[in-house]
């Protein structure tokens, strides 16, 4: 589904991502783990179009997408969430969700004034969709709250909700589980699995919680210091010496300091 070839991303002298080649299978939930500063988020930013990589190529379904703009990728069904949850703080939760499908006819001034019926009908449809997403995520009680007032965990749910508003092909989740409580984490895990099974979403998720990764992800990719360290099933990863040294630790050793 996604193929990455020799991807490099440099910020001045910092090699945030170095020569990464990997592929993500259609229908999988791929985990991406690694110590802080490993370059995971940077990799996502390159794939999702926030950064143009210094060099290397990215393919979506064998079509090159390197350097495309985020909204162009969005239109192709490639979605992402942010490590630091993003929201439209002055819109309500429902309005936030309803912003999502791009290119609504109500966005055009001409349609707004001249074809109100069409605009209204579209809005009704999107509202119904937003309501079902709100119900799915169990955030009905804050549906009309301004998104800026949500707690960190609720914002994460909203992030996931945003990806559910359209029929995505592949969704990149940057630490959706971080800062979310146990019960909610289970709900979130179930939601991801259901979307994967029932809607055919492919996921790639950055996560630090190894239990959560173990429950959902196969395969798991490990990055450290900008490079690919290992790839395999969760069992392979847990027993991989390099990974233990760089990230998981043996329980005696501390995690290494992130490279700056």
């Amino acid at each position: 589904m996604i193929r990455i070839e020799n991807l490099h991303m440099q910020f001045g002298g910092i090699h945030a991502v170095e020569n990464v080649s990997l592929s993500i299978e259609k229908g999988s939930i791929t985990g991406l783990i690694g110590p802080n500063g490993a370059g995971k988020t940077t990799l996502f930013n390159c794939i999702a179009g926030a950064y143009t990589p210094t060099s290397g190529k990215i393919y979506l379904d064998d079509e090159e997408i390197t350097g495309l703009k985020p909204h162009e990728l969005f239109a192709r069904g490639l979605l992402r969430t942010f490590q630091i949850a993003q929201e439209f703080s002055t819109l309500t939760v429902r309005e936030n969700l309803m912003m999502v499908p791009g290119d609504q006819c109500g966005e055009s001034l001409i349609d707004t004034w001249l074809r109100p019926a069409k605009v209204r009908e579209e809005e009704e449809r999107i509202r119904a969709k937003a309501d079902s997403v709100i119900e799915f995520l169990e955030i009905t009680h804050v549906a009309d709250e301004l998104a800026g007032n949500l707690s960190g965990g609720q914002k994460k749910l909203l992030e996931l909700g945003r990806t559910m508003m359209v029929d995505a092909k592949i969704v990149f989740l940057d630490e959706v589980g971080a800062g979310v409580n146990r019960t909610l984490l289970n709900t979130l895990g179930d939601a991801i699995q259901r979307l994967n099974k029932e809607h055919g979403y492919t996921f790639c998720m950055i996560e630090h919680d190894m239990d959560f990764v173990g429950r959902l992800c196969d395969p798991v990719i490990v990055m450290a210091e900008g490079e690919l360290l290992a790839e395999g099933t969760i069992e392979d990863i847990k027993s991989n010496e390099h990974v233990i040294e760089a990230y998981l630790g043996t329980g005696l050793k501390n995690k290494p300091e992130p490279k700056s």
């Binding site: 985020p70 909204h71 993003q86 929201e87 912003m99 791009g102 359209v166």
Partner: peptide, 13 residues
Amino acid sequence: DNEDLARLSGINP
């Protein structure tokens, strides 16, 4: 409010 997110949500800038 949030230009990046707007772009990402498919709003045509």
